[in-house]
Structure formats: C-alpha cells, structure tokens
Design a protein around this nucleic acid. Structure first.
Length: 468
RNA sequence: GGCGACGUAGCCAAGUGGUAAGGCAGGGGUCUGCAAAACCCCUAUGCCCCGGUUCGAAUCCGGGCGUCGCCUCCA
C-alpha cells in the first residue's frame, strides 16, 4: 500500500503507528456560508479511503472538525443580525445533509472549536511556558516562528523568500512578521471566551493541533485537506504540534487537488463557486460522487456540467446493469473461462488499484471492464453465472467506492401510477393490433410528461432520465 | 519575486522505463413495427515543443512554450 506524502514529496509504503489501526484527521469546513462543490471533493475522497481501509481489515478512527468560530463567521453573523451559533449551526447542518446525499459516512468525531476552548487555552499556555509563544499587551498570543527549526519544510518555502506583501493586521506587536496568532483578543461587541490573556478567541490553526491530539493522540497516521491548506494552515499546525509534543503530528500528509471552474479555482470571492445544495438538486448525487472520483485526487478537477453529464451517462449503464441483476442468485458454477476468472478476481484488482495511492479513476475503469466480462459470460451462454457475479461485484465495488444510488424513496401518488399503467396497456393493445399510429401517439404523450418508453423482452418500461 | 503542480484522441481521463486503461461523443452492426434501451466491433504509429540519456521514454535529464495553485481567507 503506497500513499503520497506531501511532506517528503514521494509515495511511501503505509506503515500504521498501531498495527491494524489507522487514525485520520481531516480539516473540515468553516461554516460561515453555504458549502460549495470544492468541499465535496475531500469529503468523498476520505470516505473512499475510509471504506478502503475498513475493507482491508483496519480499524479506522476518523476525526473531522468544524471550525465554528472565526473572523468570517463573526462578520457574517453580524451582517445577518443573527448569533454566530445560529449561523454555524445552519451551515453545519447543510453540509451534513449534502454529505448524506453523497453517501459520505460520518466521521467518528466531528469536534467543534467552541467546545474545545479550554483545552486550546491549556495548549497555548504550555507553548508559552516552553518559550514557543508569547502574549502581547493587547491580549493576543503569537507563535514564535524562529523557535521552530523546521518551519517551512511542509510547504517548501522560507520565511525570507516570501513576498513582502501588505499585512492586513498592521497594529502588530509581533516579534517577527511571520509569527502567527494562537489567540486573538476580542473587541467589546464580538463573541469571545475568557482566557488567561483576556477575552478572545482561538487563532485559525491552533484548533486542529489541539483537537487532533485530543481525539487521536500526539501522533496519528494520515492528515488530510485541500492542497490550498498546506500554507499557512498545515505548516503552522505542524509547527505548533511539534513544539508541544516534540513529534510531527502526522505520519503522512495527504492533500487533494482543487476543483476549478473554467480553469480557475472555485472560490466565493471570484463568483465561480458552485453551490453544493443547488448542484445536488439538479444532478444525481451518485453521478456527482463518481465524477469526483473519476479524476485522481491529487490532480486539479476542472468542473464542467457537460463533463459531469457525460460521465453520468456512463454510470447509468452500470446502474442499469445493477437493476437487472440485483435480485439474481449467487453463481453456482465455477468456470475456467477467462471472463469467469476475471469476474471471480474482480475485487482483488479493485483493491489493488486503490493500494496505489487511492487510484479511484482506475478503480472505476475496473468496473467497466468487469461489466464487459459480464456480457461476455452472457454471450457464452452462462447468463446466470455472469449476472450472479455482476451482483456480487457491483456490491463489492459499492462497498469501497460508493457507486450505487440509494433505493428510491419516491412515492408517486397512486392515481398517477394508474394513469401511466393504463396508457401503457392501451399502447400495448394498439401495438398488438398493429395500430402503430395510436401506439406512437401514446408514446408522444408520455414523452411530454417526461417519460421514455423502453420496450424490453419482458414488456415496456418507463424511464425518467431527468435526474441525470 | 519565491515555492509548487499540470499539459495524453473531438471532450473527460488512467498510465513514472518495455511498446498507449476506461468513459462520453462519433462510425458500423445485433435486437426492434419504428424507436429507445441494451449489447458487440471500430476510432491516438502517438502522449505541448526542442535536445539528451537508454537496446528501449508519455514515463528519466536539460531547455523552451502554455495553463493553474500557494505566498492574504480558502477543501
């Protein structure tokens, strides 16, 4: 099992700290606004990673935080005239709902900054005691970057090389321009928490150092997040945790590439962000999920509606096959024909592709090749065996990748169903009487209602493709 | 200015030394009253360009060109 580590910039064999266990910390969202498509990528990726480890027999501990207090949340809540709690709560729920639709398994813990202020303060105090941080007369606390020997090694940059840009916080009583805040004092009207340095709130990076170690211990296996978090967030987190614990927090840093739109990074400020909620109203969640997995996680994914729709057309074939085979029995015969052998060993190949740095794109290709083998078996006169394997293999793929739509919970009004059924049987009668003009008129009527008729050997079937 | 990523068929995309996966679109076919769906077959002598290393390179090295990301909040 090989995983690319951003710190050493190479694929390395995965060696868990505790044999048979894998501990994962993923940086979650700051719920100050609606979730956009970019948030879905790491969520789906880590969901697959988790499912993969579980299938490989690991016990998984997964923590993903909510940064439910920060400058943006405060600003946005004031703008809307609501409390920061209400604002954060609303967007956390939206996020969670979207994740459920995408079939993302919830983390074992989803800690919030506001529930960890005391441990954060203790952590900061200890850093001050160790001489790694200092408080200022204004009630802020900063981390001393020059007391952190390896600072910059994760992001591959040196403090001196950085562009001398305009620093937003100008009233600095920092010792060094690169020092960053562990604790920020709150002004009168702002939300804040008591602390040894006065009322204030945690800086941006400290919460992850504290919560990761609180829930997973000083060192854990995998640390995830978007590639845009490498600097400053993870660089600073690494420095803090190392200063406190004396060890690097994560054994392996896993960063996903960003989603772009028109080749530009998706972001609210540029106005090219796509609302996850709106997108999920328009497209099938499983089409979106598998589309996100169709590109290797470290590459940028340039989103386009057309590419998503093209992709979902392909997945529809897989879903159709599953519909056809979901109730068939398990194979009873063992055959030495190549297609049968490949169907038997499908899951091994699937897991083997994921062994190599979670190559989900190739894993999806394996599914299509498996589907072709099913048809070969069918053509060879072994339909029952082929379909049996199709059912098993699609479920196995689903277990790890999550590819099948959830069972529909739509309950059309009975009257609606009856009308459709009546029209269909009317058309069948017309067809038997060779009255094709009438039959085709009925087809047009149904088409206008959004239904496509598929005449299968076992009779006509209505298909609605509007959700693709 | 510093650091980094990427450039594979009409489109999306895998592939890090051994002779180009997969999907969509397109073409041909089977089935069908016609369609739709499904299935089968075909579709890159070539992987941004130019050099180099090698028996052999999309894959390694050097130099270009182009696109993007981070250096400020960001998944």
């Amino acid at each position: 099992m090989m995983i690319y580590d951003s710190l050493t910039r190479q694929k390395r064999p995965f060696e868990p700290i505790v044999s048979g266990h894998v501990s994962i910390y993923v940086c979650g969202v700051t719920p100050y606004a609606e979730s956009h498509l970019g948030h879905a990528r790491p969520a789906v990726l880590w969901d697959v990673i988790k499912r993969y480890f579980i299938r490989r027999g690991f016990l998984v501990h997964h923590v993903q935080n909510f940064t439910d207090i920060d400058d943006k949340i405060v600003a946005r809540a004031q703008e809307l005239g609501i409390s920061v709690t209400d604002l954060a709560e609303r967007h956390m729920k939206e996020y969670t709902d979207a994740m459920n639709q995408l079939r993302v398994l919830p983390p074992d813990y989803a800690p919030r900054v506001t529930e960890n202020v005391t441990p954060i303060n203790q952590f900061i105090e200890e850093l001050i005691n160790k001489g790694k941080a200092y408080s200022t007369p204004a009630g802020d606390v900063y981390f001393r970057v020059d007391q952190s020997p390896g600072y910059g090694r994760l992001s591959g940059r040196q403090v001196e090389d950085q562009r001398v840009g305009v620093r937003i916080e100008s009233s600095e009583d920092k010792e060094h321009p690169a020092d960053f805040a562990l604790w920020k004092s709150s002004t009168a009207g702002d939300p804040g928490f008591p602390s040894p340095w006065g009322r204030g709130r945690p800086g941006w990076h400290i919460e992850c150092s504290v919560m990761a170690s609180r829930y997973l211990g000083p060192q854990f296996d995998l640390h995830g997040g978007g590639i845009d978090l490498i600097f400053p967030h993870h660089e600073n987190e690494l420095a803090q945790s190392e200063a406190y614990w004396g060890v690097s927090p994560a054994r392996c840093w896993v960063h996903n590439g960003l989603i772009t739109h028109g080749s530009i990074k998706m972001s609210k400020s540029l106005g090219n962000g796509i609302s996850l909620r709106e997108l999920l109203d328009r497209v099938s969640p499983m089409a979106l999920r598998t589309y996100l997995l169709s590109v290797h996680y470290r590459s940028p994914l340039d989103f386009s509606q057309d590419a998503l729709l093209d992709w979902s057309r392909g997945m529809a074939r897989v879903w159709d096959l599953y519909e056809r085979v979901k109730d068939v029995g398990s194979p009873s015969e063992r055959l030495d024909q190549p297609w049968a052998q490949r169907l038997e060993s499908f899951e091994e190949r699937l897991l083997a592709t994921l062994d190599d740095d979670f190559n989900t794109a190739r894993a999806l290709a394996e599914i299509y090749e498996m589907v072709r083998d099913v048809h070969q078996g069918e053509a060879a006169g072994h339909a029952a065996t082929a379909y049996g394997w199709a059912r098993i293999n699609l479920l196995k793929a689903d277990q790890v990748l999550g590819i099948l739509p959830l069972p529909a919970t739509v309950n059309d009004p009975v009257a609606h169903d009856e009308i459709l059924a009546e029209l269909l049987s009317w058309r069948q009668e017309a067809r038997q009487d060779k009255d094709f003009a009438t039959a085709d008129r009925i087809r047009v009527v149904l088409a206008q209602a959004g239904w496509t008729i598929e005449d299968t050997p076992s009779g006509p079937r209505l298909v609605s493709r509007e959700d693709l």
